[in-house]
Simulated scan of single mutants.
Amino acid sequence: MTGICAGRVVVVTGAGRGLGRAHALAFAAEGARVVVNDLGVGPDGTPGPDSPAAAVAAEIRRAGGEAVAHGGDVATAEGAASLIRTAVETYGRLDTLVNNAGFLRDRMLVNLDEDDWDAVLRVHLKGHFLPLRHAAAHWRAEAGAGRPPVARIVNTSSGAGLLGSVGQGNYSAAKAGIVGLTLVAAAELARYGVQVNAVAPAARTRMTERVFAAAMAAPDTGFDAMAPENVSPLVVWLGSAGSAGVTGRVFGAEGGRITVMEGWRPGPSADTGARRTPAEAGDTALKLVARAEPPGAVYGARE
């Protein structure tokens, strides 16, 4: 097959449904050989009756592409190692890792128990770190053997991680952590030929049905702005060799809109060159806040 990812081997986690499935199909349509990972759990992370990874892999093959299914838990060291090993042993290489697996257990903070906190942080944040770590180790070995890769990692954050989201303290914290992980990985892995970016998508999936209910009820314009397939072209490009030079970035993607997200930067500042009293610190802080840009509304808020 031809396309901007022809010959590349791509791993997509959480690829059985929603955004991950759309990404896997889009990569395959652009010539990639795809490892389709999905544990096959419900939106809240509980086990489902079957894994959809095999179905997506079969769909790719029916369309003339190459794909293999992987049903391991990427939030475990064994599952993440097996995922990377599957790509290398099946296709002889690994070029792109798309971290996408996740689920929700939404609660207001006063009702959020420790198990729900740990479960969401585990799957989203640890489920990004472990595949990234094993892929990076593979690429470091390749570079050390004189085979420098043209490698790409695309992580999945969220507007909730950038702006916060009421009722999603665990999810927002995990997605903010993914941004931090992306920035560190981009800096550390550049020497091995690895570029690392993140997307903050807005799309209709099992996880976002309630958040985007208003948008989904909007009048039909002939363009399904909330379709997950709208996000995939950017992810495919970031996962291709054509994205050379773009790393350490976070992109918003919604409908036909792509936005380069600009994160924390120094704003108004004042330096006395000496220690302040608490009252002086408060007075200075209030003056600086008055000069600063107001924070954005939390994710999902409607005017």
Rank of each mutant, 00 (worst) to 15 (best):
Q168L: 02
S172Y: 11
V166N: 00
G161Q: 05
A187E: 14
T182N: 14
S232Q: 12
V236Y: 12
A173M: 07
P219K: 04
E229K: 05
E209D: 13
G167W: 11
T247R: 03
P219C: 01
I178P: 01
A135F: 03
V246S: 08
A176H: 01
A198G: 02
S172F: 06
P201I: 08
G161R: 04
A203D: 03
G167A: 10
A160S: 14
V179C: 03
A198D: 01
V184K: 10
A141V: 03
A213W: 06
R133A: 03
D220N: 10
A187Y: 06
G146Y: 05
P228A: 12
P201M: 15
A214D: 10
N197Q: 07
S172I: 04
S158W: 11
P201K: 13
T182F: 02
D224E: 14
A145E: 15
A186S: 10
V235D: 09
F223D: 14
G161K: 00
Q195L: 03
H134E: 14
G239Q: 14
H138W: 08
E254Y: 09
A218D: 13
T205D: 11
W237K: 11
E142R: 15
R152P: 00
V154T: 01
M216P: 00
P148R: 15
L181V: 11
V250D: 10
R152D: 00
H134N: 08
Q195G: 10
G252H: 06
L183G: 06
K175F: 00
T205Y: 14
A135H: 07
A214K: 05
V231T: 11
R133E: 07
L189P: 09
R210N: 06
K175I: 03
A176M: 11
G159M: 09
G248M: 05
T156I: 00
L238Q: 12
F223A: 13
G242T: 12
A227C: 00
Y171H: 11
A176Y: 07
E188C: 06
V166D: 06
A244Y: 04
A186V: 01
P219N: 05
R249K: 11
E254N: 05
A136L: 06
A190K: 15
N155R: 01
G161I: 03
A218M: 02
V246R: 10
R147W: 00
G193L: 13
F251K: 08
G248C: 06
